[in-house]
Nucleic acid binder design. Sequence first.
RNA 1: GCCCGAGUGGCGAAAUGGCAGACGCAUCGGACUUAAAAUCCGUAGCCGGGUUACUCCGGCGUGUGGGUUCGACUCCCACCUCGGGCACCA
Length: 834
Amino acid sequence: MQEKYPFHEIEPRWQAFWDEQRAFACDTADTRKKFYCLTMFPYPSGNMHVGHGRNYIMGDVLARYKKMCGFNVMAPMGWDAFGLPAENAAKKNGTHPKTYTYGNIARMKAQIRSWGVGYDWRREVATCHPDYYRWTQWVFLKFLEMGLAYRREAPVNWCELCTTLANEEVAADGTCDRCGRPVTKRNLQQWFFKITAYAPRLLDDLSLLEAWPDKVRQMQANWIGRSEGARVQFVVSETGDPCPVFTTRSDTIYGVTFMAIAPEHPLLQKLLPGTKSEKEVRAFIARQALIPAAERAADATAKEGIFSGFHVTNPYNGDKVPLWVTNYVLMDYGTGAVMAVPAHDQRDFAFAAKYRLPMRVVIQNPKEPLAADRMTAAYEDDGVMTASAPFDGKPNREALRAIIQHGKDRNFADFTTNYRIRDWLISRQRYWGAPIPVVHCPKCGIVPVPEDQLPVLLPDDVEFQSERGNPLANHAGFVNTTCPKCGNKAERETDTLAQWICSCWYFLRYVNPRDTRQPFDKADVARWLPVDQYIGGVEHAVLHLLYSRFVVKVLHDAGWCSFPEPFQALFTQGMICKRADDGKLYKMSKSKGNIVSPDELIASYGADTLRLYTLFIGPPEMDAEWQDAGIQGPYRFLGRLWRRVWETRDLLREAAAARPVLAQMARPERDLYRKLQQTIRAVTDSIENGFRFNTAIAHTMELMNAIDDLKIASESSAQAKAVYRAAMEKMILLLSPLVPHIAEELWVELGHPPGVMHAPWPECEEAALAADTVEVVLQINGKMRGKIELPAGASREEMEKSALANPQVQKHLAGLTVKKIIVVPGKLVNVAAS
RNA sequence: GCCCGAGUGGCGAAAUGGCAGACGCAUCGGACUUAAAAUCCGUAGCCGGGUUACUCCGGCGUGUGGGUUCGACUCCCACCUCGGGCACCA
């Protein structure tokens, strides 16, 4: 051992030791209680900053902690390796996406290792590897087989130069991220997963996820967006065509004064031909199609519309009202048609006011009667039904269901539930993704590639330099094939799967990562799933986490997964931010120039210090501000720990055989021993309840201060030395998941065999926790006026007596009448006086 | 607009009904040193007062205003500021 804390030397040595020992290899057949500790796998972007580290470090601490608690821990890692940056790099400088991606993976793997983060790398997966995406394609075929994957024409983001764009590639101002040209919508054949069919279950099962943050569950509930209401069958008066609407306000149905439908509504294509307003209406529709979706959705966009020339009949009262084509009705929500009630809906009100359409009050404000011609805004609150035939006089809330029932009895309405969530667009016109495994045959149509012919391999020899289109579509060798069904000439699908598909089942593959016959083994997965703890960023609260839940539910229905939910517990850590040059806080990013690289910090302070600071920086679920000077504290703390062991190394060895015995301890060592037990309890508690590593670290720092207070020396008593050694030893164990390298080194220094992670987690000795005296706080009218030391078991009466006898208390009570005395045993006496 | 979260010293923060500011950073003072670094000891919310000195005394203080309570950073009501999610969703 040497005097100065040699992190340079010990950290690589212990990393090599863990590799050699396969310290993190998980034997899935081991029958101890399992713990699946999963950290979200990253996109291999190449370089990580200290903010990324928070994720991996927290997962690593938890895995090491659970291992010490006796669990059989599985902690795997892999790469969400398909995606745009690799393809853009290929276009920009000719590097093949494969070269780019695997190069980045190697670099990031080395970074993760240098952080001292341990994984079972035998389970590593990369979603861009054919052995993996073969099974991603298999998942797609399952969906297709179950009728949950389908193809239809849909509007996609379109740039004149760069062709189709993913949503992520469209800048906030509606321009192309790459070339700056305006992005419009273009209708193209696209693949979808029918997530809407699972909307009710995805929403209801959120209640099973008790160990998820409420925030994430709410965000998902919000996204799925259930609303209960009615479907009402209106009919085009002139032609008899059905025009159904969805409404949550069936109580206002007698107030309908016009019908508003989306410009894209298919009914228009049927009605318009040959009418005298056709040309004008079609021009309006065409104009709306050119407006970028983001702009059209913006609240500020003025409501516009045009009369279609047709009317619809309200089945409740037979009213014929005009049918308007409007820009404020969305085609993909509800039925694409809205019954407009201007008196009771602010949007309809604004539209009616602009086009001078009539309004009719059907819910009376009980406080202040409404008159249609004097209203300046819609009345959306509750009231009493009026002008509503059989329902007049009823409170509108009560009429809601009765009106639907009335329509149901007469076959023109029904109860229904509508969801905000849309089907999931999964195809991308991109090279660097898993090819969608189907063939287009002129005779047989869409034919799935048979399972035994998977994977449909991505060809390597494609042309990236052309600015236009998907390189796959220009690769004749890939496109031209034969139909698996009839054997005639056919073409391969050239769209690839969005990377979300690859990442929504990887946690299943980790269980059997090298199985060549199936995506995973049902029995093994049934044993290892759900994931016991999932850790990742809150930015995936909806997308990745919702998609994964969906895919597992589908695989559940297909008989492959026995469990309804993939992630038992979820923890979303906060981002690490840093002040940029403008003095404001931003999440670390290249463009803000506020990136802190782990590499230099590890070089100058060591990985353990970096880990400790990252964990100490603040509550783990909250965003935190990185302060360069802050790393000093953890660095000094570890230096101090090292120095104490160095300074007392002989004494520590000498005390190795000694056992602390409570009865033989003098006051100072008994206090330290109690502090040790308190620390064990507090650290364990901090980790178990919300991963509060920041407070866990503060507790070990307090223990360190208490250890120093003991002032151990060679002439100290045998018990003092025994207690000192116990305190140092347990502290090293408590710290070992957080700062594993130094802990390993000091553990060996204390005479133990290497491998501190195999040592059991310290347990608190209840007997040593009890103190013989307690400090009692004295209050008068809730204000602290003094403290007294009393025997631990002091009765209420004794406490009250001692409190009143206290000179400070007497001084403050002078001239006051005691009204009441509150005694909290062992803690506090509060005298209420006036 | 709706839903959720946060607001505490110079700074990161702790305390979830019972001593506000643990732990750490920065600061200042001292010891060691030829010097510096490192280390160790001390100081450390604000205002006022007291003492040779100290674990001295008083008041104020957890975004603002009210309330509940013997007692509120903590619970309730209203508001302000910041952050996040959803939003022409019928």
